[in-house]
Nucleic acid binder design. Structure first.
Length: 223
DNA sequence: TAGTTCCA
DNA sequence: GACG
């Protein structure tokens, strides 16, 4: 099964299958893996329990999402292990963000998730951003992933769909506050990434638009 | 509860 | 065995 019934997906969930060409996928994958040189993948840990996640992570952009046992979920400007600023967000992704989300501000964070053979990501809601209503854009590269989408409550019914290399998903509106996760990877089905695996790139606006900017766009006088 | 495991 |  490739697609879920659209009428069972939350309002504001949009899926563009094969939005990126094979050449674009290859170039983007190369650029992401090059970024791992200065911003290496690390194993995130859950708050309090310190249990390791099965997805390895790094970030691009001004801010990156990180988690560890003591600090919990947060955004920060530097890599937790090297202390260096995150690499820049690939330009292709900024173009995609503008075209597909129409959001009037640039994304600040590009979370890079690497899924190996048995990686999964439990059902959760993105809620660590100040800009809670800004859309979230997700780009899939490499092996297919079984993506699951539910509702605002954890117990709400869920539907699943396969995301394949080059697919783009945007969560906006109600879908922005819905649970979602990844149940399974068909590891080794593609050869885009070395010996198999999946890269997911998730772009987010973290900070609210400055009040000054809102007033300016509304025609008000500056300070 | 961004975790694991179990089971119909 | 895959899915939920």
């Amino acid at each position: 099964m490739t697609s879920a019934r659209a009428d069972r997906l939350p309002n504001g969930f949009r899926h563009w299958p094969g939005e990126l060409t094979v050449d674009e996928q290859a170039a983007l994958a190369r650029e992401v893996m090059a970024g791992w040189g200065s911003a290496p993948l690390y194993t995130p840990r859950l708050p309090r329990s310190g249990k390791p996640m099965r997805v390895r992570m790094t970030n691009f952009g001004l801010l990156g999402w990180v988690t560890d046992k003591t600090g919990g979920y947060r955004y920060q400007a530097c890599h937790p292990q090297t202390g260096a600023p995150w690499p820049a967000i690939p330009f292709l992704l900024l173009q995609l963000w503008d075209r597909l989300t129409g959001y009037p501000a640039r994304p600040e964070a590009c979370l890079v998730n690497w899924y190996g053979e048995n990686a999964r990501l439990g059902l959760h809601v993105d809620a660590d951003e100040e800009a809670l209503d800004a859309p979230v854009m997700s780009v899939s590269l490499g092996d297919p992933a079984l993506f699951r989408v539910g509702g605002p409550a954890r117990r709400d019914p869920t539907t699943s769909l396969w995301l394949e290399s080059g697919d783009v998903v945007v969560l906006s509106g109600r879908a922005r506050h819905c649970h979602h996760g990844v149940d399974r990877i068909r590891f080794g089905e593609t050869n885009l990434i070395g010996g198999g695996g999946r890269i997911n790139l998730t772009l987010r606006r973290v900070t609210e638009l400055a009040r000054r900017d809102c007033l300016t766009h509304a025609g008000g006088a500056g300070p």
